[in-house]
């Protein structure tokens, strides 16, 4: 566990040292703030004390940002040769994968943290469904976990960070949109299969304030599958 934390904290400080973290946080807060409070279907336009607009914006922007964060995680280390440095220290492959996973998740959590102000502002304006907002955040974190694990897997497969990022986006887009589109085009078993595979189905059900084990199983099984496959790829390295 300690090794995971050491790796995660080093990685996190790299995000901040390289300004990646600041750029991400500024863009994310700018986007989400702009659409939540100022433009389009903002809170005042909708006239309801909920953060649905924010969650939609976050849902999309995280989907785009996460591959940019995870692309270097393994591919970058491989390219710079530092993977050899790290894995010849007392660090197991699992610890490395979890450390990388945790660092990105922490960065997302840090980026989401200031938006709690939105919640308090809303609370001051009108009656708020507290559990829906809380679960909205949980949903965002679960969704981030899925995309981080997909990003990590892509970073393990591709040796080039840019390719890793594009691969993560193209895998992610299936869960993000394509399964949803397919679900609406099919009926019966196939339709419900695609509907189950679509991330938005589960994200919406959680952010509506309903926690179903089915949703949790969905999120965690994708995360587990991706991390496990990443570990396998890393362990079978032939460098």
């Amino acid at each position: 566990m300690k090794q995971i934390l050491h790796i995660a904290s080093r990685e996190l400080s790299t995000f901040f040292d390289s300004l990646t973290a600041y750029v991400l946080i500024v863009i994310f807060l700018g986007f989400s703030g702009f659409f939540t409070w100022i433009y389009g279907a903002d809170v005042f336009f909708v006239g309801q004390a909920n953060l649905n607009t924010f969650f939609t914006v976050a849902y999309w922007s995280l989907f785009i940002f996460i591959p940019a964060l995870t692309m270097r995680s393994i591919a970058g280390e491989l390219k710079a040769g530092t993977l050899e440095l790290l894995l010849t220290k007392p660090v197991s492959d699992w610890q490395l994968i979890f450390g990388k996973f945790l660092s990105t998740l922490l960065l997302i959590a840090i980026a989401l943290a200031p938006t709690v102000i939105y919640y308090f502002t809303l609370w001051a304006i009108g009656p708020v469904d507290h559990s829906a907002i809380l679960l909205g955040y949980v949903g965002l974190l679960l969704m981030s976990m899925v995309y981080i694990s997909i990003g990590l897997l892509a970073s393990c497969i591709a040796s080039n960070p840019i390719i890793a990022s594009l691969a993560a986006l193209s895998i992610g887009i299936f869960f993000h949109i394509i399964f949803d589109v397919l679900a609406s085009n099919f009926v019966g078993l196939i339709g419900s299969f695609f509907s189950y595979m679509s991330l938005s189905t589960h994200f919406e059900s959680i952010s509506r304030g309903v926690v179903d084990t089915k949703d949790l199983i969905y999120f965690f099984s994708i995360v587990f599958f991706c991390l496990f496959t990443s570990k396998m790829i890393l362990s079978n390295r032939n460098l």
Binding site: K2, Q3, H6, I7, R10, S13, T14, D17, S18, A80, G81, T82, L83, E84, L85, L86, T88, K89, P90, V91
Partner: peptide, 23 residues
């Protein structure tokens, strides 16, 4: 290692501290 891979963006003390912690 052969090409001496190091974290280029870290300073020496931080890097050695990280390695020490890992060990």
């Amino acid at each position: 290692a052969e090409n001496n891979p190091l974290y280029q963006e870290m300073n020496i003390i931080d890097f050695l501290e990280f390695v020490a912690k890992i060990h």
